[in-house]
Amino acid sequence: MFQQLQTAYLFLIVSSVLIAAGIIALLCLKCRHLYVTREKQKSAARLQDYIAYVLSHLDDDQPLESPAFQLAKRDVQVLEEKLIEIAERVKGKHREQLTALFEKLGLPELEISRLKQLPGPLRTDAAYKLGAMGHEKATPALLSMLRAENDEAGRYIIARAIARCTRNISDLREMVEAMIKSSHDSPKLLAEVLGDSRLDLLPLLREWIKSGDSRFTLVALASLPATSLDESLIDSLWQLLDAEEKEVRIQAARLVLSDVKSSSEQIHSLMANEDWEVRALAVKAIGTWQDAAKIPVLLKALDDQNWWVKYHAARSLVKVGAEGFQALCEVASRTTHKETADLAMQQLREVLREERLAGQGLSGSDERDHKLTIYDSYFNRQKERVI
Rank of each mutant, 00 (worst) to 15 (best):
R114E: 11
A163T: 06
L143A: 07
K137P: 09
T124N: 06
R160I: 00
G120W: 07
T124Q: 04
L142W: 02
G134K: 00
L118V: 05
H135M: 05
Y128F: 12
M145I: 12
A153S: 15
G131D: 03
P121L: 11
G154T: 05
R160E: 12
D151V: 14
L143S: 08
P140N: 12
A159W: 00
N168V: 14
T166G: 05
P119Y: 06
I162M: 05
S113M: 10
R167N: 15
T124I: 13
E136A: 13
M145Q: 13
I158L: 10
L118W: 09
I162W: 01
Q117Y: 11
R167A: 12
L143P: 06
G131I: 03
Y156N: 06
L130D: 01
A126C: 09
R155V: 08
R123L: 09
A138H: 01
K129G: 02
G154F: 06
A161L: 02
R123F: 02
R164F: 01
M145A: 07
T124P: 00
R164W: 00
T166R: 03
Q117E: 12
K137S: 15
G120V: 10
G154R: 04
A161M: 05
R155Y: 09
A132Q: 12
R155P: 03
R123E: 05
G120T: 07
E149F: 03
M145H: 11
I158F: 04
M145C: 13
C165D: 06
R164V: 02
K129Q: 14
P121Q: 12
G154D: 12
I169T: 10
P140C: 10
R155G: 04
A126N: 03
A138V: 07
M133D: 02
S144E: 15
A163P: 03
K129M: 08
Y128A: 13
Y128T: 09
A163G: 04
P140D: 11
P140E: 09
E149S: 05
L143M: 13
P121I: 08
A148C: 12
I158C: 11
R123G: 05
M133W: 05
L130C: 07
G131M: 04
L122F: 13
A127I: 02
I158Q: 03
C165A: 13
D125N: 12
R155C: 14
R147G: 14
L146T: 00
K116N: 10
G120K: 11
G134R: 02
G134L: 03
M133Q: 08
A132F: 03
A159T: 02
I162H: 03
R114V: 09
H135C: 13
N150Q: 15
A141M: 07
G134M: 01
N168C: 10
L146A: 06
A126L: 03
M133T: 05
N150W: 10
I162K: 01
A132M: 13
D151L: 10
T166E: 04
A141L: 14
